[in-house]
Nucleic acid binder design. Structure first.
Lengths: 220, 220
DNA sequence: TCTTTACTAGAGAGATCACTCTATTAACAT
DNA sequence: ATGTTAATAGAGTGATCTCTCTAGTAAAGA
């Protein structure tokens, strides 16, 4: 009897999934057809359905993969000491510059808005991310980096909303000045999150004072 | 010879458009078919194409209508004296509570991300809204209500991003506490926008001091 | 070596989509 | 009253979509 080789099987599945991600990024969940995915992956329809039971299964696998990756990214962020710099670096790299993240994020949210199964996945993911941010905020609060008067969960919600919103920025304005936008986001976050003691001077110095004691995590 | 009655024609067009909006809200731009729209409007396909040359034309008309309505909403906001309260009232009513706005906004952005024609429309709209917010911010700055150190255009971009992000919040978390979220958004906006002089006290008093001199615009 | 089963191809079924074409009815101008 | 054209219906067209079915090939265990 011949047995299925799990390693080979998983590798092939991964290849198909990558092709599918390219297609979905290019044309959207509804715009990309299984035929497109087959062409992109260089396989036949029968072959595709040997690895995935349906189109929605491909999308779900893709979302799971995306969630894994964003969790990994988050772990990396968590090693940083400064919430604001960490968040900004993440926003600039992933939200403002990385097109697929912008598109798939929007597509996923739009789909979740009308597909209950999809919504479940997004809600679960959001919950996980919120918990991570809230934990981090709590830690930052106990270290005096973040205003202890802010509710961590609600603040995490707002941070997530800011990330979502920044993903829409380059779409709304393709000529967006990313450096300037990042700088303004930084100002906003510092003023929002800093403990009140740090906010007692004039506008510009206030920003500096709030961010100086924190380590930078710029990736480049 | 019989002439077309522009009033009657426009009224019928409007009815069909309303039906289309309901369909697009329910199923998305790609998910809603012309057959669905016909059923919803109670007309035949031939009839639909008597009023609109194509499906994309219906969507464009819908977006134009949305832009008109958001411009109207904005005019109303502009009559308010306080940016922050005005923005918050708008966010709470339109973004956090009004489902169609959440869905159609996401769908429109997702479509714009891959359809250049669509992108043009969204970009034009965004530009108009940004100009409105920037004007308002400038006025608020000259009145000492908003930190004059903030660049109005860049700040407007961020406000738009916040609005976009808040529209995703109820989708990411259907059990969202809207009151609490509005309160946190308010804290964030006050700390972000207030002139530096207002930010010299402790956390809670700071919020109060920044918001007290401004007139409230609560709709209810 | 031989059998079994995974791997792979591709035709095509059945549904659905955006849209067209033809035909009928109804309202206005003369 | 009558001709002209708008308003409306609905069958149908060709394209495309997801997914199935049959069948051939290759590899691993007996």
């Amino acid at each position: 009897m011949r047995k299925v080789d799990p390693v080979k099987h998983e590798r092939k599945r991964g290849e198909i999934l990558d092709a599918a991600i390219r297609c979905f990024t290019r044309d959207g969940f509804r715009g990309a057809s299984t035929t497109d995915i087959c062409t992109e992956a260089g396989i036949s329809p029968g072959h595709l359905y040997h690895y995935f039971p349906s189109k929605i299964a491909i999308i779900e696998a893709m979302i799971d993969l995306g969630l894994c990756r964003s969790a990994e990214r988050f772990e990396k962020i968590l090693t940083a000491t400064d919430v604001i710099e960490a968040l900004l670096a993440d926003i600039e790299e992933t939200s403002l510059r990385f097109r697929p993240a912008q598109i798939l994020n929007l597509d996923g949210l739009a789909e979740a808005a009308r597909n209950p199964e999809f919504a479940k996945i997004i809600e679960r993911h959001t919950e996980a991310v919120r918990r991570m941010w809230a934990d981090f905020l709590r830690r930052a609060q106990s270290q005096g980096r973040v205003d202890p008067g802010l509710d961590p969960e609600a603040t995490a919600n707002i941070l997530i909303a800011i990330i979502d919103g920044s993903r829409a920025m380059p779409i709304r304005n393709p000529k967006l000045d990313i450096k300037q936008s990042t700088a303004h986001l930084k100002t906003m976050l510092i003023r929002f999150l800093s403990p009140p003691e740090a906010g007692s001077a004039a506008s510009k110095p206030r920003d500096q004072r709030a961010s100086r004691p924190l380590t930078l995590v710029r990736k480049r």
